[in-house]
């Protein structure tokens, strides 16, 4: 019976690593639509990890989580965001705060910090080694992505990657995942958050005629 557990932890580590790679692509990527698709892939990997854990520990509610992530973050949200982008029909993301090479370097640094922070807790993970470190890195790079980009939609996406990072930590750290009621609460909160930001983005688009958040600077000190 050890083989599947061994296989499971390798699978989890692989998928977590792939999530990190997708994240780095998003940092570099300029095109809005590809960004959304990258986010969908990342969520897919997260769902994968959840299913593996659910299978390994026979925890039924982790399966629920996997299905929810699959439905919500892989299918529903990306379609909603793409429809939004198409209606506002801006494709190209203009020059971000830091250009690609410097942001990549910074993400490298953040990964290092993620590992440093997560190092004392590696003993905690049952399956897949240092997924916690990856989770912390996802959160930090998501944070960095947020203030690196100007487009409102990318900021929402960055927020969602932070969310993914947190869910990864939850899944990796806790042996059987969090109690179901908490999972549901978190999931729906994220959904509603994205809906609302979608509405706001639409309204901003209407009144500011642009998605560029750097224009939102009237409220000075």
């Amino acid at each position: 019976m050890t083989a599947p557990v061994e296989l499971g932890s390798q699978l989890i580590t692989l998928m977590a690593a792939l999530m990190l790679v997708v994240q780095l692509f998003m940092v570099v990527q300029q095109m809005l639509l590809t960004n959304i698709r990258l986010f969908a892939i990342q969520s897919l990997f997260l769902a994968g990890i959840a299913t593996v854990i659910g299978y390994a520990h026979h925890a039924t509610h982790v399966y629920v989580l996997a299905v929810l992530t699959l439905l919500g973050k892989v299918l529903l949200l990306p379609r909603l965001l793409t429809r939004l982008v198409r209606r506002i029909n801006i494709i190209q993301e203009i020059e971000p705060l830091l250009n690609a090479p410097t942001s990549m370097l910074l993400c490298g640094g953040l990964t290092l910090l993620g590992y440093l922070v997560a190092r004392p807790f590696t003993s905690l993970e049952r399956l897949g080694n240092n997924t916690l470190a990856i989770a912390m890195t996802l959160v930090l790079t998501g944070f960095f992505l947020m203030f690196n980009r100007r487009k409102a939609i990318t900021q929402v996406l960055a927020l969602l990657t932070v969310e993914n990072g947190v869910m990864l930590a939850a899944v990796a750290l806790t042996t059987y995942g969090m109690p179901l009621v908490v999972e549901l609460g978190i999931f729906f909160d994220v959904m509603v958050a994205v809906m609302i930001s979608g509405i706001l983005v639409y309204r901003i688009r209407e009144s500011f005629a642009s998605m560029d958040t750097s224009k939102l600077t009237q409220l000075k000190g």
Binding site: F147, R150, T213, S214, L216, T217, K220, G221
Partner: peptide, 8 residues
């Protein structure tokens, strides 16, 4: 000056 106004 601290309250610069830009979200970034």
């Amino acid at each position: 000056a601290l309250q610069a106004g830009s979200i970034q």
